[in-house]
Each structure stands twice: as structure tokens, then as C-alpha cells.
Design a protein around this nucleic acid. Structure first.
Lengths: 196, 196, 196, 196
DNA sequence: TATGAATGAGCCTTCATTCAT
DNA sequence: CATGAATGAAGGCTCATTCAT
């Protein structure tokens, strides 16, 4: 039950399959809803037996946690990386929003699941990691907004909330091959925020 | 089984109680999640027997529909009313966002449930009414944005999505007795959009 | 709860209504099945409130008992009356089958309910009366068959079972305004039994 | 959820168990009544958990359908087989009634359930197969009766109804180790019908 | 590893019955 | 007498999870 193999060759295959399960689960959960999707349905879509899922995850909720981790961890990493560089706040903001929007549209299903299950994430020890990641990311954005020069045309906390709202909402309407590229979308948001 | 009484006196009491159930359900569903809440728990919080809920609603899903209707219908009505008046587009936008934000914060629980169950609403005939209301509201806002004067600093469709994102997201962070009033929040959003 | 009024005027109305309930219940139970019919449905068809039924019957099962009593009691009475008369066995048999078939087709719904709920009737003290009536009636027919003259072409017990089977089954196919009258049907059965 | 395994070895075991469930269900339903028997009680008698029943049947009603199919299908098959042979009508009738009575007494429980739930079978698409089988069987018997030589002493349609009534009723009184064998019973019925 | 049969707890819903009005 | 809201005890069914093979 969810014990990672020790031999490297096996471990690699194991990790690859586990990763496939997470992606497929995100897709199905996003479409049908986490609670409305049975482990059986998920297994069917993966072409394996229901019991087989338990080789990769201790249970349904751990699968949900994995989806959220896969969403938050790389985003947080890249954002931190970016902010450690030395650049003017406005340029950093533009770069961050690009990064962020790109991540959101690349993980649309993860995002939709994350938003659906917001109330679950707020409670319980097993969700502490996900909760902390989210908070840390918001703090990063908040700090960056505070470093922006000039007279703020809008309350800084409100600007943060607005930005969170619009970027995250992108997952709900973005379609690949749409009229606007992720970069154009991101820049649109940044311009809005900077009053351009 | 959810049959509205015919006698006026009884009907009034029935409607009042039904309304109370919807509000309480929105509160509990928002906190615990729709799927994670049992009809028993809901009944307990209302101080009635589980079976009693079925005097007012045909089932759990109809209760969810009622929550969404109670959210969308009055918003749509008031927005239409406002847009029928003769006023400059910018003033109408400001008024509309105020109205909208006020409605969202007054129906925070409804909104949270609505967002949680987005994927359910997208499918099934019983959800057609709710889907249509949402689309109609978005069209109203879209039309208003199109009537704004001047050089748009941002793509109009993107502005719509951004506005939807930030306003709806308000339900997730707004707290009564917070630093900003709903009006201040609404005006902040409008200013952002108009590049002020 | 099912207390018969004492004042004659009221009692008459009460009895009339109670009788109407039994007939309607037989009709609905025969069509939908006893278990598949709710007290609410029954009340709806009668145009009264569900609670109102309990003025006439202590409960659903007592209503079923009343249906069975209304079926068996008059049949048994008339059969006994007939058999007390002085007539040749063959003539008595013919008369009895006529009486019986006429009763069955006049109480088709009662019969269908009675047959449906056969397994319920077999158990429980509250069903003793109905069970005894049925047995007594069968004994009457059995005794009459035993008094028939001549060489029996068929085992007497088997003849009894056959007769019970064909007459009771009549309830399942007889239609008013059909090709054969109840009397013709009855005589057909008698002729069959007597080898005519 | 009632999905037949594909691998032959598993399928065989599955079919055997499913068959066992049908037989046991017929027994319990005949004794207690279909509606009065809970899936839990049935599972208890089978020594499995309640949920386990749903591996073999989609639901309680499908179980009932299976009972009826198991009753009607082989009877219809054998009757058709017999009637395709070249033999005088009277001999065929005798053979058919023997076959029929033998089937009824061997499937007493199935028959009792079938008769109990007559009203259910009459309605609904899922019952079309059972309804058709019953009708087809009756047509077979009807056709055979029409081919009988000689002056009919009784209306042919009435003879059919009488035969159906007496044979089917056999399920309600026949006991193994009774005085008469199924063959004797069958021949008794045939003699009755032929005026012997 | 993988399978799928089996478990058993729990959920939504129904419904006979009661009782305040 | 009549009403219909309310109760509460089940019942059918689902589904995450386990485990023998």
C-alpha cells in the first residue's frame, strides 16, 4: 500500500505511474467533482483495477493531497526563485504574473479541484502542508505588491485579493488555442493592476 | 413531498420555513461542503427530524438548486433594473459593481457553495435554469463593458473575466467588520478596471 | 382513531365512508400492489388527507384485513345458506360455482389483493379470522364434491384444487362486457368438473 | 455492480453464485413476500454482506426479474421443443401439461413470487421480457387447444383460462411426498380438460 | 504487483403514523 | 371530524477499502 520501491529501476516506473494517476485524477475530479468520482471510475479511466490504486496512494484523500501538492510546490519554488533575483518590483510583478498564469493554465484541472475542495483544505492536520504553501505564496505576492513604487491607486490588500481572484479564475475560462496567449492574459492583469 | 400548501396562512409559514432551510443549508454547505454534509446533520442544525426536510425539498440536489436560485435570481433582477435606467456607462458600471459586491458579501455562503459545485451545475437538465441565469448575468456585464467610452487599456473580454474573478473571489475573503466596506471594495474594483 | 360513532345518524355516514375507503383501497392495491401503495396515494385518490384515513382504520394492515373480510364473509354466508337448502349435489354444485364466480368477478380487486398478500395472511394472529374463513369455504366445497354421485373421473382432492385454481384465477382475466357472462363461465367450470 | 467477469474461470464461479442467489431469493421471497424481505435479510440467509448482493444484481428489482426469467425461459424452451415434434394434439397436450406441472412444482417458489408480484410485472419496460414470455407461453397452449379434435365440450378460451388457473395454482398446494405425483396431477388436469 | 470479490459503514430517501391546530 | 406538518425507523444502495489469489 503506497510503498515506494527501493530498487531504482522499479522506483522509476513506480514514480512514472504514480504521476500518471495524479494527472488523470485531476482531470476526472475537475470534470466530475472529487466526491462524485468513485475510485472505481478513476481506475476504469486509467485502465487498471480499483484495488490497484492503493499501490500508489494510501487512500482517496491522499490522492487529493498529491494533486494539491503538485499544483502548489512547483509554483512556490519558481516564484521564490524569481523573487530572489535582483530586478525592479514592476518587472518582477510582470514576470511573476506570467509565471503564475502559465502555471495555472498548465494545471487547470489541478486548480479546479483545488478550488472545489477549498473547504476541505481548511481543516485537518493532513492539509497543513497545502495550507501553508498557499499562504506562503500569497505572502510572496503581497510582499511584492508592497514594494511597488508610486502612489497606489488602490488599497494594497484589495489589490492582492483582486489579483488572486482574477488569476485563479483564469482556470475556469481559459481554453488552449483561445484568442489570447497565457502571456497576453498575464500582461493584461498586470497592466490592470498597475493602472496602465 | 415538497408540495406547497394552498391555504394562504399555511403557505406563508411554509415559505418562511423553507426560506430558513435554504439559508441554513447554504451556511452548513459552505462550511463543510455539500457532499460532506449529510441531510441528518443539516436537520440537526435546523432542529428538525431528517425526514422533515423532505416537506420542503424533493431531495438534496433540489436544495442545492434552491440555494443557487436564491443567489442568482435577485442579482439578475436588480442588475437588469439598473441597466434599464438612463445613465452614462461608467456610472452604470460603478453602480453595478456596488450592487454586485453587496450581493456577494450578503450571500457569501451561497457564493461559496455555488463555486464549490460549479462542475455539477454544468451538467444536467435540472441545472439549466441556474446555468442560464449565470450566462445572462455575464452577458449583462459584458454588454456594459462594451459600451464604455474611450480607448480600452485592456482587452474587453479579458476585462470581463478579470472582473468576474475578482468580484466572485470576494466571497472567500470578505469578513463583516473588516477594514473595507463593500462599497469601498466595489469602487476599488471599478477604479482598477477603469485605470484610475 | 377508528372509533365508530354512537349516534345513529353519524354512524351511518361513518359506515358509508368507511365502506368507500375499503372499495377504493381494494382498487388501488390491486393495481399498484399493497406495499407499493402509500397511505398518501390512497388518501389522494379518495380526496382526503392522509391522516383522515386513521379515522376509519387503525392502520394499513387493518385496511387490508377489512378488504379480505369484505371478500370472504359474504361469500361464506351465501355459500352456507345455499348448502343448507335441500337439493341434489350436482345442482348445488352448479349453483355454488355460479354464486362463487359472480362473487369473484364482483370483487375482482379484493381477490387480486387477497392473492397478492397470500403469504401475509398465512402468519399472525390478526389474520386468523381471514384464514379461518378461507378454510371454512374450502371445506364447504370439499364436502359438496364428496357428496357428488357416480364414479369420480378424477381424484376428489385434485378436483377441489383444480376448481379453486380456475375460479380464483378468473379474477385475473375477467373483463366486464367480455364474451362470456359470469354465469356462462361458472357453468363452463362446472361442466368441466362433471365431465360434461 | 453486476458486471460479469470476462475470464472463464471467474465467470463460472460468478454464474454459479449468482444462480445460488436467485434460488435462495425465490425461497425467501415466496415465504416472506418480496416487499417484506429486506436485502439485509436475504444477505443474512446467504451468509454474505448486504453489499455483496450488488455484485450479482443491479438492485432488488433485477433480482426479481432474474427469478421470473429463470421460471419462464426454460419452460418456454421446452414447450416449444415439444410442440415442434410430430404427434397427435391430445398426446401433445398430455405431454405439455406434464412438463408444465413438473416445472411448476420444481419451481414452486419462483411461481409463488411470480404470482405475488403480478401487478409489478404488468408495468414498466424492464418487465417487457417477462411479460412477453408469459404471453408467448399462453399462445402456445392456446394454439394447441385449438388443434384438439372433436366437439369441444367447453369454450376454448375458457378452457385455456381454466387450465392456466389450475396448473399455476398447483404451486400453492403441492407438497413433495404428497399423495399424488406431479405426473398424476398433470394427467388429472388433462383428463378434466378432455372430459375423460 | 495486480486483480476483483467482498465488506460494512453510512447516506439519501420513504412512509406509516401521530398530534397540534 | 379533518388537516398536514412532523417524526423516526428502516430500507435500498453506494463506495472506499481490504485481502485472498
Amino acid at each position: 500500500m503506497a510503498t515506494r520501491p527501493t530498487r531504482p529501476a522499479l522506483r522509476e516506473r513506480y514514480d512514472r505511474r504514480r504521476q500518471g494517476v495524479v494527472v488523470e485524477a485531476a482531470r476526472v475530479f475537475a470534470a466530475r467533482g472529487y466526491d462524485q468520482t468513485t475510485m472505481q471510475q478513476l481506475a476504469d479511466e486509467l485502465g487498471i483495477a480499483a484495488g490497484g490504486l492503493y499501490h500508489y496512494f494510501g487512500g482517496k484523500e491522499q490522492l487529493l493531497i498529491a494533486i494539491c501538492d503538485e499544483l502548489m510546490d512547483p509554483l512556490l519554488d519558481r516564484a521564490q526563485e524569481l523573487l530572489e533575483q535582483d530586478a525592479p518590483p514592476e518587472a518582477q510583478l510582470r514576470a511573476l504574473v506570467r509565471l503564475w498564469v502559465a502555471h495555472v493554465v498548465a494545471h487547470r484541472d489541478h486548480m479546479l479541484v483545488f478550488q472545489q475542495e477549498r473547504h476541505v483544505i481548511e481543516h485537518g492536520d493532513q492539509w497543513r502542508g497545502v495550507r501553508d504553501s498557499r499562504k506562503r505564496f500569497e505572502r510572496l505576492v503581497e510582499g511584492l505588491l508592497d514594494r511597488l513604487d508610486g502612489e497606489p491607486g488602490i488599497d494594497r490588500r484589495l489589490a492582492l485579493s483582486a489579483l488572486l481572484g482574477m488569476v485563479n479564475h483564469t482556470a475556469q475560462w481559459y481554453r488552449p488555442r483561445g484568442r489570447l496567449s497565457p502571456e497576453q492574459i498575464a500582461d493584461g492583469y498586470t497592466d490592470l493592476l498597475l493602472g496602465r
